[in-house]
């Protein structure tokens, strides 16, 4: 046996850990999936009252073309995700508005200022009783969003680890902290 054959036979027994290689393959697959679903995670919203046990992850994928675009997802308690589609329109100044009608009939609107790039969020409700109520969304550093409703009702929507729609590496825009009625 030549030196080369002996060396190859000996060192061919050394292998990387399958577990570690699988881990890195899975990591890359997860990253790619997140990139596809969430181009730029800038906002989070949660549905109050009508979707009592479900959260919404709102993704302002607002860099798309005119027409329908996915701006968020309902996440039911069993983990099922339903895309929320929004209509995209532009005004004469180039400001972009994306509006989605949620399953409960309420509207979630994302407005993007063409000059500053700032994004604003509006949550409007359909029924007369709720129309004048104020909704506020606050997002903490861990990515947990809390929706407050008339200072007495609140619900949390969590994105990141509990679903695959949000990129946990990105902290949501602080612009999403104030929602008007």
């Amino acid at each position: 046996m030549s030196n080369k054959e002996l060396y190859k036979n000996t060192f061919s027994k050394i292998h990387a850990s399958n577990e570690k290689v699988t881990e890195v393959i899975k990591m890359s697959e997860t990253k790619k999936r997140r990139k596809l679903v969430s181009k730029k995670l800038v906002a989070i919203a949660a549905c109050v009252a009508c979707v009592a046990s479900a959260g919404i992850v709102a993704n302002a994928a607002t860099d798309g073309e005119l027409g329908k675009t996915v701006i968020g997802w309902f996440i039911s308690p069993d983990g099922k995700q339903t895309a929320i589609e929004g209509d995209v329109s532009y005004d004469e100044n180039g400001n972009k508005t994306t509006t989605a009608t949620l399953e409960n009939g309420n509207n979630l609107t994302v407005k993007k200022d063409s000059q500053t790039g700032d994004e604003y969020y509006e949550y409007s409700v359909g029924d007369e009783e709720s129309k004048n109520k104020k909704f506020m969304i606050s997002v903490d550093d861990s990515g947990k969003a809390t929706v407050e409703y008339d200072d007495k009702y609140s619900e949390e929507a969590v994105f990141g680890d509990k679903n695959t729609t949000g990129d946990v590496d990105e902290t949501p825009s602080k612009n999403s902290s104030d929602i008007v009625k």
Partner: peptide, 23 residues
């Protein structure tokens, strides 16, 4: 992955460091 691991192992002589390098 095995080739990368073997290079790392030839330097470090340590499995855990070599696995980290592979990743």
């Amino acid at each position: 992955s095995d080739s990368i691991f073997r290079i790392a192992f030839n330097y470090s002589r340590n499995r855990s460091d070599s696995d980290d390098i592979v990743q």
